[in-house]
């Protein structure tokens, strides 16, 4: 696995940002080609949410991957998390502007009463301090507290997967796979018995 790590050495962490824009670019292309179906709002809303969840699961996988295979992707993790947050913000913006269309009465009621929206909003709220402290200055300033704070990632990923599970009818496979992945990745950490990422 050292070979993989060697090969990755010249690739800086920031490359994740342009790569992270590709799913968005793909959506824009599909939109321009009229390939988003008759309900482009739902299509875009779901695609953005799904991309966010994929980056969250990806970020969560980096440490277990290192434990198991020795492949070290830690220096990409911050960008993976920030890209996830970027898609969460877009997903939320599409819901507010194009889906629920700023019907504040319904929005307020939904956040309070609809578990999937409550949980989704909770996940978003949890990610705000994470995104705000994803920089070197914050790490220096917060010291040991930074690691404690960033355990919120686990909860954020879990809320994302549960949010997906709650929005569907019946019990389709796809959201269960995401929930299962998050569960397994968190279980790794529990079994390992170490809540620091080293």
């Amino acid at each position: 696995m050292q070979r993989v790590n060697q090969a990755l050495r010249p690739i800086p962490g920031w490359v994740v940002y342009p790569l992270g824009l590709l799913p968005l670019a793909w959506l824009v292309v599909r939109g321009a080609l009229g390939d988003l179906g008759v309900d482009p709002v739902k299509e875009v809303e779901h695609a953005l949410g799904l991309t966010a969840l994929q980056f969250l699961v990806g970020g969560l996988a980096i440490t277990p991957l290192r434990w198991i295979t020795g492949v070290n992707l830690i220096r990409y993790r911050r960008a993976v998390g920030l890209v996830a947050f970027f898609y969460v913000v877009l997903h939320l913006a599409v819901w507010l502007l194009l889906d629920i269309q700023l019907r504040w009465g319904e929005i307020g009621a939904d956040i309070l009463r609809r578990p999937y929206i409550t949980i989704g909003m909770l996940g978003f709220a949890l990610m705000i301090p994470l995104a705000a402290t994803s920089n070197n200055a914050a790490i220096r300033r917060l010291g040991a507290k930074w690691r404690v704070l960033h355990r919120l990632t686990y909860l954020a990923a879990l809320t994302g997967a549960v949010h997906f599970m709650l929005v569907v009818k019946a019990w389709p496979t796809e959201p269960m796979l995401y929930l299962g992945s998050v569960g397994i990745l968190l279980a790794f950490r529990m079994v390992r018995g170490r809540w620091t990422t080293r």
């Binding site: 008759v38 309900d39 019907r103 319904e106 009463r113 609809r114 578990p115 929206i117 709650l166």
Partner: peptide
């Protein structure tokens, strides 16, 4: 799990 107060006309 969700509101039926309004709908989006496709």
């Amino acid at each position: 799990r969700w509101s039926q107060a309004s709908e989006r006309r496709i």
